[in-house]
Amino acid sequence: MTEYKLVVVGAGGVGKSALTIQLIQNHFVDEYDPTIEDSYRKQVVIDGETCLLDILDTAGQEEYSAMRDQYMRTGEGFLCVFAINNTKSFEDIHHYREQIKRVKDSEDVPMVLVGNKCDLPSRTVDTKQAQDLARSYGIPFIETSAKTRQGVDDAFYTLVREIRKHKEKMSKDGKKKKKKSKTKCVIM
């Protein structure tokens, strides 16, 4: 069974824990209790493949930012979460993405942009803004509501699919490099 290491990042209060708990335990946590770091595991079937999701729910508070490099190193894919009623959390996505790329030393890291709290009427981040940002990053965008469960499975499952595509691409690139290195030079 394939294991996928997913990391949920975003500013404090955007609903990272609520999304994760909704996926794992099928219930909505409405009281806000700032996370330092929590880890969850769940076995699911995605596109006919049974897999184990190892999900790291991270601290959004700035005082825990020193811990970010460590979990970013171990993560295979990242859910970059903002709240649709919090423009600052949307603007912060850029910083999370840049930090992930720096730590992973790669421009090509599996990510999904997630606009959470889409059940709320007080939207300050337009869907088109988020779609445009995701398009500019070359990553999928999904709106979710941890409260109603809308888009929750889709967000995590899409990230797994992005990781699969990335692994497939990397193995193809690896095979191309191996083929090239088999060419021999004969000096007579």
Score class of each variant (00 low, 15 high):
residue 20 T to R: 00
residue 10 G to F: 01
residue 73 R to V: 10
residue 48 G to V: 07
residue 158 T to E: 07
residue 82 F to C: 13
residue 11 A to D: 08
residue 128 K to Q: 07
residue 56 L to D: 01
residue 11 A to H: 11
residue 131 Q to S: 08
residue 13 G to A: 12
residue 45 V to P: 13
residue 106 S to F: 10
residue 112 V to Y: 11
residue 82 F to R: 00
residue 7 V to P: 02
residue 154 D to Q: 07
residue 49 E to T: 07
residue 86 N to F: 02
residue 65 S to P: 06
residue 106 S to E: 13
residue 153 D to N: 07
residue 26 N to P: 01
residue 57 D to W: 00
residue 68 R to V: 03
residue 11 A to E: 14
residue 46 I to A: 09
residue 61 Q to C: 12
residue 154 D to W: 05
residue 41 R to N: 04
residue 159 L to F: 02
residue 165 K to V: 13
residue 13 G to L: 08
residue 56 L to M: 04
residue 104 K to V: 04
residue 68 R to A: 07
residue 28 F to H: 02
residue 18 A to F: 00
residue 137 Y to K: 08
residue 121 P to M: 10
residue 22 Q to T: 07
residue 82 F to Q: 04
residue 90 F to S: 14
residue 111 M to N: 02
residue 58 T to G: 02
residue 37 E to H: 02
residue 2 T to W: 11
residue 42 K to M: 09
residue 76 E to P: 03
residue 124 T to H: 08
residue 21 I to Q: 08
residue 84 I to A: 14
residue 29 V to D: 11
residue 16 K to E: 02
residue 80 C to T: 04
residue 150 Q to I: 14
residue 160 V to S: 12
residue 50 T to P: 12
residue 66 A to I: 05
residue 78 F to I: 04
residue 181 S to A: 06
residue 78 F to A: 01
residue 158 T to D: 03
residue 17 S to Y: 01
residue 100 I to E: 02
residue 30 D to P: 13
residue 79 L to Y: 09
residue 80 C to P: 01
residue 187 I to N: 15
residue 50 T to D: 12
residue 169 K to G: 13
residue 57 D to C: 00
residue 160 V to G: 07
residue 133 L to H: 15
residue 28 F to R: 01
residue 86 N to Y: 02
residue 133 L to S: 08
residue 109 V to E: 02
residue 75 G to F: 09
residue 18 A to T: 04
residue 136 S to I: 08
residue 71 Y to M: 05
residue 41 R to C: 04
residue 69 D to I: 05
residue 40 Y to Q: 00
residue 27 H to V: 05
residue 105 D to P: 11
residue 162 E to D: 05
residue 121 P to H: 10
residue 114 V to P: 01
residue 122 S to Y: 06
residue 50 T to H: 12
residue 20 T to Y: 00
residue 80 C to W: 04
residue 100 I to D: 03
residue 176 K to W: 13
residue 71 Y to T: 11
residue 17 S to I: 01
residue 183 T to A: 12
residue 104 K to P: 13
residue 26 N to M: 06
residue 115 G to L: 12
residue 124 T to A: 09
residue 5 K to E: 10
residue 188 M to S: 10
residue 96 Y to H: 10
residue 161 R to S: 15
residue 115 G to W: 08
residue 63 E to A: 07
residue 19 L to P: 00
residue 159 L to R: 01
residue 67 M to C: 04
residue 29 V to S: 11
residue 126 D to C: 08
residue 132 D to K: 07
residue 13 G to F: 11
residue 62 E to F: 05
residue 73 R to C: 10
residue 188 M to W: 06
residue 35 T to E: 00
residue 30 D to T: 15
residue 129 Q to E: 04
residue 24 I to L: 05
residue 153 D to G: 07
residue 47 D to C: 11
residue 158 T to S: 09
residue 169 K to H: 15
residue 25 Q to W: 04
residue 152 V to A: 07
residue 89 S to V: 04
residue 181 S to T: 12
residue 56 L to T: 04
residue 150 Q to R: 08
residue 55 I to E: 00
residue 96 Y to R: 15
residue 47 D to N: 11
residue 113 L to I: 09
residue 156 F to E: 02
residue 76 E to A: 07
residue 19 L to F: 05
residue 40 Y to A: 00
residue 7 V to E: 03
residue 160 V to E: 13
residue 121 P to F: 09
residue 169 K to N: 13
residue 57 D to G: 00
residue 11 A to N: 05
residue 23 L to D: 03
residue 3 E to V: 10
residue 48 G to A: 08
residue 75 G to H: 07
residue 30 D to K: 15
residue 173 D to C: 12
residue 36 I to F: 01
residue 64 Y to F: 08
residue 99 Q to R: 06
residue 157 Y to L: 09
residue 177 K to L: 04
residue 106 S to T: 13
residue 105 D to C: 04
residue 157 Y to W: 05
residue 62 E to C: 04
residue 34 P to F: 02
residue 120 L to V: 15
residue 180 K to W: 03
residue 46 I to P: 11
residue 18 A to K: 04
residue 57 D to K: 00
residue 60 G to S: 03
residue 51 C to R: 09
residue 121 P to C: 12
residue 21 I to M: 07
residue 21 I to K: 03
residue 170 M to R: 14
residue 54 D to A: 06
residue 181 S to C: 12
residue 66 A to V: 07
residue 5 K to S: 05
residue 103 V to S: 09
residue 174 G to D: 09
residue 145 S to Y: 09
residue 83 A to C: 12
residue 92 D to G: 08
residue 58 T to H: 00
residue 22 Q to N: 10
residue 43 Q to S: 13
residue 53 L to F: 10
residue 52 L to Q: 14
residue 175 K to P: 08
residue 75 G to K: 04
residue 6 L to Q: 04
residue 188 M to T: 09
residue 36 I to H: 00
residue 134 A to R: 09
residue 115 G to F: 14
residue 167 K to G: 05
residue 70 Q to F: 07
residue 112 V to W: 02
residue 118 C to Y: 09
residue 93 I to S: 14
residue 135 R to S: 12
residue 164 R to M: 10
residue 28 F to W: 08
residue 156 F to Y: 12
residue 167 K to V: 08
residue 61 Q to Y: 04
residue 115 G to H: 07
residue 48 G to H: 09
residue 72 M to A: 11
residue 125 V to M: 10
residue 90 F to I: 10
residue 22 Q to E: 06
residue 44 V to G: 12
residue 161 R to Q: 03
residue 102 R to H: 11
residue 130 A to N: 10
residue 120 L to S: 13
residue 156 F to G: 02
residue 63 E to C: 07
residue 182 K to E: 12
residue 107 E to Q: 04
residue 184 K to E: 07
residue 181 S to E: 14
residue 100 I to C: 14
residue 5 K to V: 02
residue 80 C to I: 10
residue 63 E to V: 04
residue 15 G to V: 01
